[in-house]
């Protein structure tokens, strides 16, 4: 009886280990997937300027899977890639480096992928989408073919976009105080495009009226991108600005507090640095 058991056990063990295979996988080269191409001077420049120092990939070669299929888009012009990359580095990343005193901050928090499209994404309601941030990992910049460093509107737009989207990412990492949502509560609306005078309603832009988190990002983007002077002037040009300005000041204070509490950044210092960078960039 014991003998049988022993034999049975041995056989079972033999069965179990009999199929151990040490075959190694072949080295399969999947070049067919098309992820490789011969590097050009442009690729090297991008690697040295963004990828190596900041761990950011700037994807300028078309990859349809990065985009919403419902838009008709075209790839960026190659000569536009370096100017846009410079704007990204000089007007967005470097001021944060300086304000935080370390390159680690942007290495840690910046989205790791920036994708470019040549034209804006035209929505059926007539609005053109200029940028999208997805899950703190990726930013899509549209309309890079019309970018020019001599054009203040183009500079303002790309700065607004980068600082707006990056604010969302910062908010996703560390939530802003809920008090912010209460300041303009009741004024947020889906009909944000219709408002004629956002400042009197306590918003820096129409888009800020869409939702509190957009309001927060719009405030940051406006203050950083346009600078203190332009921001102050803008607030006082609108008719009936007194109605909204007090709430705007409350929200401004909460934004400044958030940057201090969450990231130990002096917001006004950051604002000055962004403006210095902007001036240098456009000269």
């Amino acid at each position: 009886m014991k003998k049988y058991l022993l034999i049975c056990s041995l056989l079972l063990i033999a069965i179990i280990i009999s199929c151990k295979k040490d075959d190694k996988l072949d080295d399969v080269v999947l070049n067919g997937l098309g992820g490789t191409w011969k590097r050009t001077a442009l690729d090297n420049w991008l690697y040295d300027s963004l990828t190596a120092p900041y761990n950011i990939e700037l994807k300028y070669k078309w990859d349809q899977s990065e985009f919403d299929m419902s838009y008709t888009l075209v790839p960026p012009r190659e000569e536009q890639v370096i100017p846009v990359a410079r704007a990204i580095r000089n007007l967005w990343i470097e001021p944060y480096d300086q304000a935080t005193g370390t390159a680690l901050f942007m290495k840690m928090y910046s989205p790791k992928l920036v994708v470019l499209s040549g034209v804006p994404a035209a929505r059926t309601d007539g609005a053109g989408i200029m940028g999208v941030a997805e899950d703190g990992l990726k930013i899509i910049l549209y309309d890079v073919n019309s970018f020019s460093k001599k054009d203040k509107r183009a500079i303002d737009r790309i700065m607004h976009l980068l600082h707006h989207e990056f604010t969302h990412i910062l908010n996703q990492k560390k939530a802003y105080p809920v008090e912010f949502n209460k300041v303009s509560a009741g004024s947020y609306t889906d009909g944000w495009q219709q408002a004629e005078n956002p400042v009197s309603l306590s918003f820096v832009s129409n888009y800020a009226m869409k939702a509190p988190e957009e309001d927060f990002a719009e405030m940051v983007a406006f203050m950083l991108g346009r600078g203190k002077e332009e921001y102050e002037a803008y607030l006082h040009t609108a008719p009936d600005y007194e109605k909204g300005i007090q709430k705007l000041r409350e929200k401004e204070a909460l934004v400044v507090q958030y940057f201090k509490d969450a990231y130990h950044i002096d917001f006004y210092d950051l604002q000055t640095r962004v403006q210095q960078a902007k001036k240098a960039f456009m000269d």
Binding site: G32, W37, W62, D63, V74, P76, G118, V119
Partner: peptide
């Protein structure tokens, strides 16, 4: 770029004159 997706593809992955037909 030549890339294999559902079929082998030829992709003009930066701006060419072809895109002038698409570019609004």
């Amino acid at each position: 770029r030549l890339k294999a997706l559902q079929r082998p593809e030829l992709i003009f992955d930066t701006y060419t004159y072809l895109d002038d037909g698409i570019d609004p």
